[in-house]
Nucleic acid binder design. Structure first.
Lengths: 336, 336
DNA sequence: TTGAAAGCGCTAACAT
DNA sequence: ATGTTAGCGCTTTCAA
C-alpha cells in the first residue's frame, strides 16, 4: 500500500480511502491512485484491515450440515450460498456426519476463523458450548433441528404435524399395522417424527406396537435390513412410514427385493429426486429445503445488523405429496 | 496475548511460543501460560499471525463447482472436504452455474481471501485470468474438465472413451439411428462426449446425421423438450446417448410421457441415484466422483508442499454399468 | 530459556 | 482534500 502511495505521489491514507471507496478524495487523485494500484497489482489484504477496524467482519459464514453430500443438505447449502453471495459473503461448509464431537471440532474451526455467523444442523449432542460465542455476538442459526442447551434462532419444519399427517393418511386408507422406520434417535427431528406417528395412531385408537417401531436407521443399508426383517416377521405391517430420505429408499429397496412394492404402502418423510418415476411412485411428506436455507441465511444477516433481536423460531409447514405408494390398500392377513 | 503474558508473568514472545508449540520453553512456564490463556479465554487470531509470518497460510482452499446442489458436484465436494479436513484445512465452496463471469468473480473472492489452493470445474470461458495467481504460487487444480488458457493439474475422466464405449454398446445392439443429447457446448466435457459419440458412429460406418445431435441442453426441462421433439419427428432415433445426469433424466421423463421407455434405448453419461430402480433400469457410463474429488484435493496439497511439481493430467476411466435401458433392441421403422 | 523491539498491511483518530 | 501517527495481534530478529 505504501508502494502504491509513493507511486501515486500521495499519502498512504489516501490510498486507503480510494481502495475503500471512502469520500473526500478528489477525482483526479483517486484516478492516479487507481492506476498505481493496477500497475503494481495491488491486492488489499482484508485481514490486515480487520485487525484495526472497529467492526470486524470476515465476510464469511460457517455452515455445518450432516453432509454436503446429502441431497437435502445440498439444497439448503445452495440456498444459503445464494443469500450469502448476494451480500458478498463466502460460505465455509463442513459435514458433521451426525457426530457431536465432529460438530464441536468443526464449529471450533469456524469460530477460530472468525466467521461472521454460523448456521448449523445440530447433532444429538448438547450445543451449550456455543454460549460464549453467542455472548460475543456471533449470530447462530439452527436449521432443520433446534439445538439443545442454547436459545437460538431456528428454522425448522413442523415434524410432528408432518408425521401425524402422513400416518393419518395411511390410517385413513384402513391400515392398522403401520411400521415406523426411524432415523438416529439422537436427532431431534427423528424423535419428533416418531411422536407424530404415535399421536396419529393413538388418535385413531390403534394400539401401539413396539415391534413396529425401529429406530436408529441412518443409512440405506440399515433401513433395508430393518424393513426386510419386519416384512418377514410373523405379523408384518401393511404400511410403512419412513422418517427420512435414505430410510425411505432403503425400505423401497427391501420391498422390491421381496417383490412386495405393490402390496405394502409407504409414505416417506422428505421428498427425493425421481420419487415420482418409481413404480409405485412414492408418496412423501415434502419439505422445502431451499426455503429453509434461505430463511436461515436471512436470519443470520438480520441478526448481524441488529444483535439485540429476540430469537425466533421459524416453523415451516410440510406438504403431503400423494403419488401412489401411500395409497396402497392394506392386504388382508394371510391373503399374500 | 499481552494480557496472557502479564497474567502468567512472562514475556509476550513466550506466550507465542507456547501457543504455537515451539520448543525452548520450560515445562513449568508453559503450564503457567496455558492456565492464564484458559482463564482469559484466549483465542489466538490466525490472521494477525499471518501478517508477519513468512510462509502465509490461511488453512483454507476454495472449491468452485457448477453447483453445490448437483449430486455429482456434491460427491466431489464431500471428497475434497474429507481430504482437507484431515489436514486441518477448511473449504470455501461456491457455485458457478456454468457462468464464466460468475466463475471469475467467485474465484476473485477466493483469491482475495487468500485461499491456499483452488479447485475448480472450469466453465466455458477462458481461465487465463488465473495466471498471475498461479505465478504467485497458488496451487490450482481443475476437476472434471481441463481449463483453457492455462496449464494446471487436472483430474478428469476419459470422456471420449466413455462416450465411444456407450455409443458402441448401442451400435452393437443393432441401433443405427442413435441420437446424442448434449450439454452446453461451451463445456469441454460436452464436446468430448460428442466427439466420442461421433467417433464410434464413424468407426461403425454409420453416417452422421446432424438431426440426431442436439446440444446445449443444461436442464431437465430442456432435455425433456428436445427428446420429445426428436421422438415425434419423421425419422426418430431408436436409441439415445445422453451426455449428463440431468439430461438423462429429462430424456427419460420425455420417453415416459410418450409411453416409449421400453421402446427406445438409453445410455446416459454419469450415474445417478435410483437409476437401478427405474423401469427400465438405466444403463450409464459411471464416473467415480469421490475418487475425482480426492485426487484433486491431494494434488492441491502435494503442490502446496512442492510448488515446482510439473503439472499432471490425471485421467480416470469410466465404467459402463449395464442395467437394461441400454439393451433395448432397435424397433423396426414403422413397426411402432 | 526468555524477552524487547521492530514491523506485517492496514485503519482510526486526529491533524493540516 | 490530504497526510501523520499510533496501534490492531501477532511473529520475526536479535540480544540477554
Amino acid at each position: 500500500m505504501r508502494d502504491v502511495a509513493e507511486r501515486a505521489g500521495v499519502g498512504i491514507k489516501t490510498v486507503s480511502r480510494v481502495v475503500n471507496g471512502e469520500p473526500g478524495v478528489a477525482a483526479a487523485t483517486a484516478e492516479r491512485v487507481n492506476r498505481a494500484a493496477r500497475e503494481l497489482h495491488f491486492q488489499p489484504d482484508p485481514f490486515a484491515g480487520n485487525l484495526r477496524r472497529s467492526v470486524r467482519r470476515t465476510q464469511s459464514i460457517g455452515l455445518l450440515l450432516s453432509s454436503v453430500d446429502n441431497p437435502y443438505c445440498a439444497a439448503v447449502h445452495r440456498a444459503v450460498e445464494d443469500v450469502a453471495e448476494s451480500r458478498g459473503v463466502s460460505v465455509l461448509s463442513a459435514s458433521s456426519d451426525e457426530d457431536p464431537q465432529r460438530e464441536r471440532a468443526l464449529v471450533g474451526t469456524f469460530v477460530s476463523r472468525r466467521v461472521d455467523g454460523l448456521i448449523l444442523s445440530a447433532t444429538g449432542g448438547d450445543q451449550a458450548y456455543l454460549r460464549p460465542e453467542m455472548d460475543a455476538g456471533t449470530p447462530v442459526v439452527a436449521v432443520d433441528r433446534a439445538p439443545v442447551g442454547i436459545d437460538v434462532d431456528s428454522v425448522v419444519v413442523d415434524n410432528v404435524a408432518g408425521a401425524r399427517g402422513a400416518t393419518a393418511h395411511l390410517l385413513r386408507r384402513g391400515h392398522r399395522r403401520i411400521a415406523h422406520l426411524g432415523d438416529l434417535s439422537m436427532i431431534a427431528t427423528a424423535t419428533q417424527r416418531l411422536d407424530g406417528f404415535r399421536q396419529a395412531a393413538a388418535e385413531a385408537g390403534v394400539p401401539a406396537d413396539d415391534q413396529l417401531v425401529v429406530q436408529d436407521l441412518h443409512t440405506v443399508e440399515l433401513a433395508f435390513d430393518a424393513t426386510f426383517r419386519l416384512l418377514r416377521s410373523d405379523d408384518p405391517p401393511t404400511a410403512l412410514f419412513t422418517s427420512q430420505n435414505l430410510v425411505t429408499i432403503g425400505a423401497i429397496r427391501a420391498l422390491r427385493s421381496l417383490g412386495m412394492q405393490h402390496d405394502v404402502a409407504v409414505v416417506g418423510f422428505d421428498d427425493f429426486a425421481l420419487a415420482d418415476l418409481l413404480d409405485p411412485a412414492v408418496t412423501v411428506v415434502a419439505q422445502d429445503p431451499v426455503a429453509i436455507g434461505r430463511a436461515a441465511a436471512e436470519r443470520v444477516f438480520a441478526r448481524l445488523e441488529d444483535r439485540s433481536l429476540p430469537s425466533t423460531q421459524t416453523v415451516l409447514a410440510t406438504r403431503l405429496v400423494v403419488r401412489g405408494s401411500g395409497e396402497i390398500a392394506p392386504r388382508r392377513r394371510g391373503s399374500a
